[in-house]
């Protein structure tokens, strides 16, 4: 059986909120290392990979691997019933047909309990090869979100070019063109505002801004976002969570002009 208790429902609320417009039905794969989720959007252009390590929960108990097939719209409806600060406990039997969610409010003695019916989702799993990326950019997540939104006003696609001078986000469309260039930057007082660019070789790739703006819904989960690029492989956009948990998005590039 599974029993996973989260100090703040807020974490799961924000994670589900960040991915519910990209994927609909997902398997939450529970095992002794934590709760994982991997799902692609309908067009197989983007993939979300979430890992909530067992350390994020206390207590965490998962006697055997359990796949919880859940519709994210249903999960969103139930999570709306939890206050951000509520203690959230997920429970499921082995081979369950429902997942049980309990929300306890810290100060007032209120306890809410919901069951969500599970679905049978036979999702193919994609093997994501370990990649030594040519370029890794760590930057404020809010800044990346603004760049994507700003450039999406001009074009559907953005080219991301990393050289030793820095990283340039550029686009062109019917009304004209635009670009944002960032260089490594250290803010001593506020390290969360740092921009760090690690480059082993120059790289330039083009991506859909619609998907990048969608990924940026996760910006509230982490002050920094990490972009990993190599020629001819999908972009990795990673939002690190506490306890080595993470929310990752992979996006296939656009090719040719």
């Amino acid at each position: 059986m599974l029993e996973a208790r989260l100090e703040q429902a807020n974490l799961l609320k924000k994670v589900v909120d960040a991915i519910k417009d990209l994927v609909q039905d997902c398997n939450f794969d529970c095992n002794d290392s934590g709760i994982a989720l991997q799902a692609m959007d309908n067009s197989h252009v983007a993939l979300v990979s979430m890992m909530l390590k067992s350390e994020s929960f206390s207590p965490f108990r998962c006697d055997r691997n359990i796949a919880l097939g859940i519709n994210l719209t249903s999960l969103t409806k139930v999570l709306r019933c939890a206050a951000n600060e509520d203690i959230l406990t997920l429970k499921a039997e082995d081979a369950p047909d429902v997942v049980n969610l309990v929300f306890e409010s810290a100060e007032s003695d209120r306890l809410s309990e919901y069951d969500i019916k599970l679905m049978d989702i036979d999702q193919e799993h994609l093997g994501i090869p370990e990649t030594e990326y040519a370029a890794t950019i760590s930057m404020p997540s809010a800044e990346f979100q603004k760049i994507c939104r700003d450039l999406m006003a001009l074009s559907e696609s953005v080219s991301i070019e990393c050289t030793k001078e820095g990283v340039k986000f550029a686009c062109s469309g019917d009304i004209g063109s635009g670009s944002v260039t960032l260089r490594s930057h250290t803010n001593v007082e506020k390290p969360q505002l740092n921009v760090e660019i690690d480059l082993s070789e120059p790289v330039a790739l083009t991506f859909s801004l619609k998907y990048l703006v969608n990924f940026c819904k996760a910006s509230g989960l982490s002050e920094q976002v990490r972009l990993c690029l190599s020629n001819e492989v999908p972009l990795l956009v990673e939002y690190a969570l506490s306890n080595n948990s993470y929310l990752r998005f992979y996006l296939a590039p656009k090719i040719g002009d």
Binding site: M40, S43, H44, V45, A46, L47, E124, H125, L126, G127, I128, P129, E156, S157, T206, S208, E232, V233, P234, Y250, A252, P253, K254, I255, G256, D257
Partner: peptide, 14 residues
């Protein structure tokens, strides 16, 4: 306009 590839070009079904 640039052509959108999909993930099957890069990740293998496991």
């Amino acid at each position: 306009a640039p052509f959108q590839t999909d993930l099957y070009n890069y990740f293998i079904k496991s």
